[in-house]
Amino acid sequence: MSNRKIGDVILDVQNISLSFGGVKALTDISFNVREHEVRAIIGPNGAGKSSMLNCINGVYWPQQGSITFRGQTFKHMNSRQVAEMGVARTFQNLALFKGMSVLDNIMTGRNLKMKSGLFAQALRWGPAEREELQHREFVEHIIDFLEIQAHRKTPVGRLPYGLQKRVDLGRALAMEPQVLLLDEPMAGMNVEEKQDMSRFILDVNDEFGATIVLIEHDMGVVMDISDRVVVLDYGKKIGDGTPDEVRNNEDVIRAYLGVEH
């Protein structure tokens, strides 16, 4: 369908181990993500998928290993640093301001890009107003892109779940991310909503040129839209490759179908 150019490695995760007390969440995980690709992380419940995302995102600090982003290697990063480097994410359990409108929620995604200070913004002082207009225009493009014009002024809490997920994606897009981390973007959706979301993810990848790392349970969706897939089980990597390779991987089949050891 599309002929995007998959580029060099943009994000390289090396030998990550993370534990909470005695619980080993991740053990010696390594994989990389190339520019412009759609990379999926899959695995059964409790496999460590969200923990992996949280490490990349700077929420958790892994005890061992390193993360290299665009050639810079980090032991651990804080979330703000990560965001400033162009990594945005959406959340499994939605992290939106329920009482604020769709428009305002997506505007918050522009926060890091705003140059004028708090007071200038509050008073619409001098260049602050012009700046806000530019950001608003960008946000309007996102609203148009996600087809949520009808809900621009609706408080997010009043929207159905599927639309809230879309707003969450919109807020992440507002950061103009180079890498977009999606944590179960299709959890709890019906078939139609899943199709819509798949289309949006592919379009984001295509039009915004963002690299996408996503966690997903729905195997059908993952196999359809991903370029490469990492499979985790009990905090270990058990498979890595194209959807076809992963599908035929014995370990993966065992993890998913629960064959006796």
Partner: peptide, 14 residues
């Protein structure tokens, strides 16, 4: 009436 509005469309919220 060259400058009178003939068509409007709401785009990007405007």
């Amino acid at each position: 009436r060259p400058e009178a509005p003939a068509v409007r469309e709401k785009d990007l919220g405007i």
